[in-house]
Amino acid sequence: MQDRPSYDELLAAVEHFLDTEIVPNVPGSRGFHARVAANAIRIVRRELSGEEEHLAAEWSGLDAILGPAERPAGREELRSALRERNEVLSALIRGGDADDGETARKVFEHVQRTVRDKLTVSDPALLERS
């Protein structure tokens, strides 16, 4: 257990520094890259806050399509197992098994949900405009 500030609080300090001290005072491409860097911090903060929930939702969505499987406990193991299951889902789509009928609907809705979760991390403003 680390001391406060938490990782989110530390990242918030870096984000604030970039936004208020660097971006307004540095012209040209370096200033632009500072803006991009501040945005990268925001992406990481949103990912850390939603990751557990997103990974669990993706796993159960895949359960509904590929059949239930035991979810690994550790985060790295879960990521790597999700990757393998997404390879299986991709092969299923490539083979035409998600072209129509109930499977097509289930797959489409699952993919839509996982992409929405990715966007809540990478670009929530885009989702608000949709």
Binding site: R83, N86, E87, L89, S90, I93, R94, A98, V107, F108, V111, T114, V115
Partner: peptide
């Protein structure tokens, strides 16, 4: 990594 949305 795999991209099921691109596969669709």
């Amino acid at each position: 990594e795999p991209h099921p949305a691109f596969e669709l």
